Computed example of a mutant assay.
Amino acid sequence: NTHNLGGGVVFPQQDAAAICAAARKAEVASYLDGARLFNAAAASGLSVAELARPFDLVSVALSKGLGCPVGSVLAGDKAGIARALRIRRMFGGAMRQSGILAAAGLYALDHNVARLAEDHANARLIAEQLAGVSGIRLDLATVQTNIVICRLEEGFPDALAIAARAKEASVLVSALGPRTVRAVTHLDVSREDCERAVERLVAIIRRG
């Protein structure tokens, strides 16, 4: 998977395999929260199956990079899925007439996986522009997928102020900390949108 707060960095597969092996040795099941698993696959060159293989149970979100309005998929062995279904019902998680959501999920899997590389390229575009601005600290090595995290040096407005001013300019970013700003690219923003957004964001930061 990718690290959200780490800027979308792909978790090393060899480390994931080692963790799962240690868990199995201790007779503990392993679970992968694969919220951005398809992004990790697109960035690493490994297939989703390869990334998921060491784990006993895997969830994949269809509503993030794949653009589905809602929904996730849970994968595992027959006994694990049966237990998960029972627990879901115990907590009131069952859904009725969910075929329309399943159809949206199938569309996302059929049409929106290959284009994830576009989101990654757009994030890189934003990161490269921000990295060249005085007062911003950004490690380009961490921009591997569709998340960009930068830090504002002292003497500049804090992250909440930058996010508020950016919103006024129709650019949505979030404040992760007092001086940390996060931007995320996705299928609803084009290359041109990202170019305009980073131009406005840079101008806002430079104004101070």
Rank of each mutant, 00 (worst) to 15 (best):
V70W: 15
G71A: 07
V73A: 09
V73Y: 05
V73T: 11
L74M: 09
A75M: 15
G76S: 06
D77V: 07
K78H: 10
R83A: 15
R86H: 12
R88W: 07
R89A: 14
F91W: 14
R96F: 07
R96L: 10
Q97D: 15
L101A: 11
A103C: 11
A104V: 01
A104M: 03
G105K: 04
Y107R: 14
L109A: 04
L109S: 02
D110E: 14
V113I: 14
A114Q: 15
R115Q: 14
R115G: 10
E118K: 07
E118S: 13
D119A: 15
D119W: 08
H120R: 12
A121R: 15
A121E: 14
A121D: 14
N122V: 05
N122Y: 11
R124T: 11
L125E: 02
I126C: 05
I126S: 00
A127F: 03
A127P: 01
G132R: 08
V133G: 00
S134P: 10
G135I: 02
I136L: 05
R137T: 11
R137P: 02
L138W: 01
D139H: 07
A141Q: 12
V143Y: 00
V143L: 01
Q144H: 06
N146T: 08
I149T: 09
I149E: 01
R151S: 11
L152S: 00
E153F: 06
E153A: 15
F156W: 06
P157D: 13
A159T: 06
L160E: 13
A161D: 14
A161K: 13
A161N: 06
A163K: 03
A164G: 07
A166H: 05
E168M: 08
E168V: 10
E168K: 09
A169M: 05
S170F: 08
S174Q: 08
A175C: 05
A175T: 09
A175P: 04
L176Q: 08
G177R: 04
P178M: 08
P178E: 14
T180D: 11
T180A: 12
T180I: 13
T180S: 15
V181F: 00
R182W: 01
A183C: 07
A183K: 03
A183W: 09
V184W: 03
T185W: 03
H186D: 14
L187A: 10
L187H: 10
V189P: 06
V189K: 14
S190A: 06
R191Q: 15
E192W: 12
E192F: 09
D193L: 05
C194V: 07
